[in-house]
Write a protein that binds this DNA or RNA. Sequence first.
RNA 1: GGUGGGUUGGCCGAGAGGCGAGGCAACGGACUGCAAAUCCGUCUACACGGGUUCAAAUCCCGUACCCACCUCCA
Length: 461
Amino acid sequence: MTLRLYDTAARAVRDFVPLEEGKAGIYVCGLTVQSEPHVGHVRSAVNFDVLRRWLLASGYDVTFIRNITDIDDKILAKAAEQGRPWYNLAYVMKRELDKAYDDLHVLPPTYEPAATGHVPEMLELISLLIDRGHAYAAEDGSGDVYFDVQSWPSYGELTRQKVDDMEAAEDADPRGKRDPRDFALWKGRKDSEPETASWPSPWGRGRPGWHIECSAMAGKYLGAAFDIHGGGVDLRFPHHENEQAQSRAAGHPFASYWMHNAWITTSGEKMSKSLGNSLLVPNVLERVRGIELRYYMVAAHYRSHVEFSFEALEEAASGFQRIEGFLERVGPGAAGTLPDAFVAAMDDDLGTPAAVGVIHDVVRLGNKALAEGDHESAARHAGEVRAMLGVLGLDPADDHWATGGTNDLTAVVDALVQGLLEQRAEARAHKDFATADQIRDRIKAAGVTIEDTPSGPKWSV
RNA sequence: GGUGGGUUGGCCGAGAGGCGAGGCAACGGACUGCAAAUCCGUCUACACGGGUUCAAAUCCCGUACCCACCUCCA
């Protein structure tokens, strides 16, 4: 069975046929670094990280580009509001974002280009579009350059919209547009904007429009044609529609497949950036571990809306702990082979929910084997579980996660708990169960759970 | 106005014409000194109204409600 992916442009699941056999080029729209990342932002990164890991596991040589938008209207406005340089705001937020990605074990991309580092490439592309008759410098002297929507008949094809049905941009302020739907490729500098936020161009000083950066950077690192372009559903229009129009109008075939992840919502509403702090990644990670948050995200299909709640998150954490508990009971071991059912689920448009179902099925088989004393069989199942978790970035034995749960205090707690456990063992040996239970209750009240296993008692927080 | 998506059991979440995903919670049983963990079992749902079909959660028609996008958004 081959990998099949849902292509937004085709509105159907299609067999994945790469441009070059054995290789996959992926471009994912990263974030505009203007505020702290919340769980919704990170979902996109996790979803595409799973895609990447699955392609790797399937033997592809993957080039994965995820950009950073580090200059735009909002960054400038926020920085001005906070009285600090725009580049400082962008940089600090980028570092926050890197931390959040790392906390969720999102692999670093092959390269992470920033918009401000690619102005020459964008200017080149804009000039090409003007030469080909698909863009024009505003006639009002603003220094803006616009894409000429009417010059590109297939404009709207990605989202199946007709230009005439679209509402005009509200930001216009027509600023010399020929058609209200035309969008900015280059924004002439306004007097209110800092000098540092502008670059020289044939049309005067200015800064890039939002859409052109992705076309320019995707072209630079992946070539005129590449395999997969991804991002959140909200980006389909205008961002991706515009990207495709620009690149194709410039003569580039651009992406073969378009993939879009759905939202995480709260109270049925989209997670807006002004929603408050409770859903920022660091705050959510005070409630559950990173690996559990990742499991929560992976357990839902990437194209399904997820209604975020701490109840559901903690429930997911319980489910994950069941898997972890099994692996701990079996003990260390190497990753094994991937069960066919898992491969089939993943090949079917990254069917992670079904894949997670397979993990639980194998865990049950493994637990059963363990209960029957069949360690060989249990170890084989554990190997399969590790392999599956590895593909999803969820293997607890991965060094990346190991540091998260252990620190200096672990040894301290262990020493204290061990002392109490010895007292309890002694009491139990004398059948003094009242004392034994009292010790266990006290340990539990401190937040440590005791589990009696054939190899002696074990504790966990 | 245009475009796209959704509504599944106590809860979370899959599935996309027939053989009832899975998890969490709850309850019963096994194991245990008692627990915990684990295993076995129980709880058998698809917004509403029509239709097609031997067979519909799944396809068609209609209705209701919800969400997203329409040039700042993961």
